[in-house]
Design a protein around this nucleic acid. Structure first.
Length: 816
RNA sequence: GCCGAGGUGGCGGAAUGGCAGACGCGACGGACUUAAAAUCCGUUGGGGAGACCCGUGUGGGUUCGACUCCCACCCUCGGCACCA
């Protein structure tokens, strides 16, 4: 052995050398085939914790592997630097968000370098810098011109703690996804992006290559497409301008069972349609509904409440008078904000009718129905009854019969509703991209001319949150002139949701310093789309959906000919603490990666994170587990630094051949595992090979040339996972720098082939003997051997052999 | 409630329908050491002296053969959840 393995020393050495040589530079004019492998970039909200490493280490190995396989791999890194977490933290620490953010980035960049990350830092992007967010603003203006960005007064999700509105995707069970505060409702004039225009296209995944089924399902459920019918209930005799109430239903076949009609408390007709005698009660109910938090309103186990408004409408199918109620379980934002209630065939309506003592009329035949009343709603299909001319229509024809009738008689039309709402992007906070709109008393909302971009975020704003945008009180920012008439005007003071920034960042990496546009068209032609994206599943219905929308919108704006941003997606799991619980400082189970990088070395941390278990399932940290990996790296070091002058004894051809076979088998397995994100078994098979090498050395039966070949291949295979150790051993074994520029070795199926196999002998499916036989053994020979086996004989004694099953090269099963 | 993933030794986990438990951790025994650490060697699913028997959440099924496929159920985790 030449010297001891000292990970921290060699890691610092190689990190310096790689940086000095610009080893990871990615050139646009590289002739090799391109591969864009992207990992989600982090918020610079503190430091990189072990969970980040769990995401980045296997990704880093994949990038190195793809490079060795001959691809020009774009592997960039940057910082998602705008947004609430950074701002909240800055307020807590009493420093400016910019200073705080940039300090964090500096620190995190250093951490990235300390594990030998493969990124090309010349391509770094930081989304809070004007050279980045300028294109955010440009993007917004394109959407605005296309009618895909609009301003509207609408009920919004207000987080009282973050002091801003939130998008629907940022509300989890009625609570703010960041701070867990119950969300309140506020009616505000806000900017929206028309993602619902793309609802149908977003449901179509035919143009992605490989996405987890789970994520696709989550997006489909989030979009929530429902095919139904919009029906008009007549209110002409109330003397209002509106002559009808439109309801949306997916069950027009149940329309004869309508016994009342429900409006959302926010429905625009409520006030005018309420009878004078019901005014007070209705106003009280509406006020109560407004006060209730979203959690209360959305709770399904709360009793269904509501009050009659004292007026009726007419069922267009049978002319019946139907009383109208308001109830807060009806959502103003879905469908038409009004529903026809069919208690017999809808669970919620059934509950409401029972509470209120309203009639329940069966119009769809439940299976084995006795003709009487129901104890619970029947929501399945069935033959129509009590439905006039529709009586007897079978369940599978019922929808079309009713929908067709409605369309023929001009009382309804087929339509589609979506659960997904438009994306609310306004934020009443400082640390975000200013929305590039100017309000002129004469010309209304006017887009900032593109040549005036970026609209700079002023540095000297008072950014303490108050519920209004801090920019509103910044005189210098607020006051400007109308781009149309030049008269005094004021700027939009809300900033953009941080998810706008990161919905297109992957494009910016292609030409990070391009000043003429969001992305250099030539660079986009070369690099787009992302071939492989890696990140957490928590972004399923946020970031990943927004990005797909953005790419489709950019295509329609004419900038890019691209349908999907990410062809393949892989979601790694979550790393838990040693106690198998979620890591947190308060639980005391948090792991600081820097401690291990500084002692056992970055390579040990990297390899251990890959070894824990299947990446997509996550895993638990283990302080002793990483020791085991560290021990293995030491053994690798010992194998790679053997003094080969001793290898001149008797060479055993069988042992040499065995070493060759193990090498090629391992190469085949490691290659397949890196292709398939199976990092844990990749490490395991590398360990097996090094164990084999150790035994082979001890036996003294290998010649120096064969030993060198095996060790060389092993070092190359270790390079993606443990880049520093591999580089050092590569040099020590007399190879030329750098191991990371070597081609990935190729295995030979022939050399990996066994020439002897273990034949399993079973009797009635139970293992009774193993026989080492030649690969070329014939079926007859195998049967013969099995039936004559001494160990098998007792089980055949006195019994008749009924059948013998032979699986070539595997087993013989004797059925008696 | 609905959708998805999962349930294998003391622990993390491995196994194209064909030797269950690879690899690693831990534990135990041994070598080296005055001693400890480190390192190395050996043993390690349970039962049994043993040949053997039993074992992949539970109960059925398909099959010569099931951790693997099918049906029903239980449990854990993740997502969605008054969307008419």
């Amino acid at each position: 052995m030449l010297q001891r393995y000292e990970p921290t020393a060699i890691e610092a050495k190689w990190q310096g050398r790689w940086a000095a040589d610009d080893l990871y530079h990615v050139a646009d004019d590289d002739p090799r085939p391109k591969w864009y492998e992207l990992v989600m970039f982090p918020y610079p909200s503190g430091d990189l914790h072990i969970g980040h490493w769990f995401q980045y280490a296997p990704y880093d190995a994949r990038v190195r592997f793809m490079r060795m396989r001959g691809y020009n791999v774009l592997a960039p890194m940057g910082f998602d630097a705008f947004g609430l977490p950074a701002e909240n933290a800055a307020i807590q620490h009493g420093i400016h968000p910019y200073v705080w953010t940039m300090d964090n980035i500096e620190r995190m960049r250093g951490q990235f370098k300390s594990i030998g990350a493969v990124f090309d830092w010349k391509r770094e992007i930081i989304s809070c810098l004007p050279e980045y967010y300028r294109w955010n603003q440009w993007f917004f203006l394109q959407l605005y011109r296309k009618g895909l960005a609009y301003r509207a007064n609408a009920p919004t999700n207000w987080c009282p703690s973050c002091q801003t509105v939130l998008a629907n995707e940022q509300v989890i069970n009625g609570r703010c996804e960041r701070c867990d505060s119950p969300v309140e409702r506020r009616d505000l004039e806000q900017w929206f992006l028309r993602i619902t225009d793309y609802a149908d296209e977003l449901l179509d995944f035919s143009k992605v290559v490989d996405w987890p089924e789970r994520i696709k399902t989550m997006q489909r459920n989030w979009i929530g497409r429902s095919v139904g019918v919009e029906l008009s209930f007549d209110i002409a005799d109330h003397g209002l301008e509106e002559k009808e109430i439109k309801v949306f239903t997916t069950r027009p076949d149940t329309v004869h069972g309508v016994t009342f009609l429900l409006l959302a408390p926010e429905h625009p007709l409520v006030e005018r349609l309420t009878s004078p005698g019901r005014k007070a009660a209705v106003q009280e109910y509406v006020a109560q509904a407004r006060m209730a938090t979203e959690i209360e309103r959305l709770s399904t186990d709360r009793p269904k409440t509501g009050v009659p408004i004292g007026t009726t409408c007419i069922n267009p199918f049978n002319g019946e008078q139907v009383p109208i109620f308001i109830a807060d379980y009806v959502l103003a934002g879905y469908g038409t904000g009004a529903v026809m209630a069919v208690p017999a065939h809808d669970e919620r309506d059934f509950e409401f009718a029972t509470e209120q003592g309203l009639p329940i009329k069966v119009v769809i035949t439940p299976p084995e129905w006795d003709g009487g009343g129901l104890s619970e709603a029947y929501t399945g299909q069935g033959t129509m009854v009590n439905s006039g001319q529709f009586d007897g229509t079978p369940g599978d024809k019922a929808f079309d019969a009713a929908a067709g009738y409605a369309e023929e008689h001009g009382i309804g039309r087929r339509t589609v509703s979506y659960r997904m709402r438009d994306w609310l992007i306004s934020r009443q906070r400082y640390w975000g991209t200013p929305i590039p709109i100017i309000y002129c008393p004469k010309h209304g909302a006017v887009p900032v001319p593109e040549e005036q971009l970026p609209v700079l975020l002023p540095e000297d704003a008072q950014f303490q949150p108050t519920g209004e945008s801090p920019l509103k009180r910044h005189e210098g920012f607020l006051h400007t002139h109308c781009p149309v008439c030049g008269e005094p005007a004021h700027r939009e003071t809300d900033t953009m949701d941080g998810f706008v920034d990161n919905s297109w960042y992957f494009l910016r990496f292609m030409s990070p310093h391009y000043a003429e546009g969001l992305v250099d068209p030539a660079a986009a032609r070369k690099w787009a789309p992302v071939d492989q994206y890696v990140g957490g599943a928590e972004h399923a219905v946020g970031h990943l959906l927004y990005s797909r929308f953005f790419i489709k919108a950019l295509r329609d704006v004419g900038l890019l000919k691209l349908d999907e941003p990410f062809l393949r997606l892989f979601n790694q799991g979550i790393l838990l603490g040693e106690d198998h619980e979620k890591m947190s400082k308060s639980r005391g189970n948090a792991v600081n990666p820097d401690d291990f990088v500084g002692t056992l070395g970055a390579d040990a941390v990297r390899v251990f994170l890959m070894f824990i278990g299947p990446w997509e399932q996550g895993g638990s940290w283990s302080n002793t587990g990483i020791q085991g990996v560290s021990r293995w790296l030491n053994r690798l070091w010992a194998l790679g630094t053997k003094d080969l002058s001793g290898l001149d004894g008797d060479v055993d051809r069988v042992a040499v051949r065995e070493l060759e076979r193990v090498t090629h088998k391992t190469l085949k397995k490691v290659t397949a595992d890196l292709e398939g994100f199976q990092f844990n078994t990749m490490v395991a098979s590398l360990m097996e090979m090094s164990n084999h090498l150790g035994r082979a050395w001890d036996s003294g039966s290998i010649d120096a040339g064969s030993w060198r070949d095996a060790v060389e291949t092993l070092i190359l295979m270790v390079a993606p996972a443990a880049p520093h150790l591999a580089e050092e051993l590569w040099g020590l074994t007399g190879h030329e720098y750098s191991v990371h520029r070597q081609p990935w070795p190729v295995w030979s199926e022939e050399l990996a082939q066994d020439d002897e196999v273990t034949l399993i002998v079973q009797v009635n499916g139970k293992l009774r003997d193993r026989l080492n036989v030649s690969l070329e053994i014939t079926e007859t020979e195998a049967r013969e051997l099995a039936l004559n086996s001494e160990r098998v004989a007792p089980y055949l004694d006195g019994k008749q052999v009924r059948r013998v099953i032979y699986v070539p090269g595997k087993l013989v099963n004797i059925v008696v």
